[in-house]
Design a protein around this nucleic acid. Sequence first.
DNA 1: CTATTTAAGTTGCAAAATGAAAGCGAAATT
DNA 2: AATTTCGCTTTCATTTTGCAACTTAAATAG
Lengths: 138, 138
Amino acid sequence: MTDPSTFRSHCPTNYALEHFGDRWTLLIIRDLLFLEKQYFREFLSGEEAISTNILSDRLKKMEKDGLIAHRSDPADARRQVYLLTDKGIDLARIMVEINRWSAKHDPFTDVPPDYARRVEEDFESVIAQAVARARAKL
Amino acid sequence: MTDPSTFRSHCPTNYALEHFGDRWTLLIIRDLLFLEKQYFREFLSGEEAISTNILSDRLKKMEKDGLIAHRSDPADARRQVYLLTDKGIDLARIMVEINRWSAKHDPFTDVPPDYARRVEEDFESVIAQAVARARAKL
DNA sequence: CTATTTAAGTTGCAAAATGAAAGCGAAATT
DNA sequence: AATTTCGCTTTCATTTTGCAACTTAAATAG
């Protein structure tokens, strides 16, 4: 955990910002939660093009902060498997609300209309599904 | 609006990050939405201690991005009154979910137990109230 | 079993963002 | 008329970011 005594405040908004108030962390959460990515290489391949040093830094910080954990892949000792902790999985509701907000306000959104409709009509099960998939990896 | 053609992607997570993927924007949203702040001076007074140049930059960017608007105060022509647009007000659900997440995971949280309970038990009306207060200013 | 490819980083450096402090012009108050 | 207040802008030092090249260990191919 990043030393909480260095936090600017313990206002809940600020607590969240200390965890993901940057341009990359939530993209990694998205990859883990919705896109089922788990390897360093896979996070690099997103269209936002994170660079290796930033990815490396963020994975370390997210682990310190308790959002993710990592194990070495039993099938290939070079690989690390990254996965969300319960604390990270608990971001699912925030993430889906973000998806709703962006789908509503971005005229160029990538969100397929079918998914947007499902989020509106079946919010709870969209979350439950993502949570269940992530929990299954613990 | 910040030129959407410069966005790294139109993934909804990234769309959101292009709006508030930094250490300050959500604190200003919090001040507007929950703490009823509306003057430059008031935003400066938060315990996170934003500096004047950053505050000035963020207010401009947020206005370009359509999250806030400003008017000059009829009672004092030196002052600007800042307020949330509908797009900004629509962040209320995300903000309340962030409050829930932080209240749950921050052992040092500032969130009073009473408010936390109210958010759990009466989520919709907590949001409705903040939204109504913000809309009343439009 | 040697050579090369692949995974997961690290390092170096330039560019951009951040933050503290001081300065400034216009409007309001004394 | 002089002073204070508001909402900034400017300057400059520090921090963060991002690109590219390099490294190390493990897997695979010949």
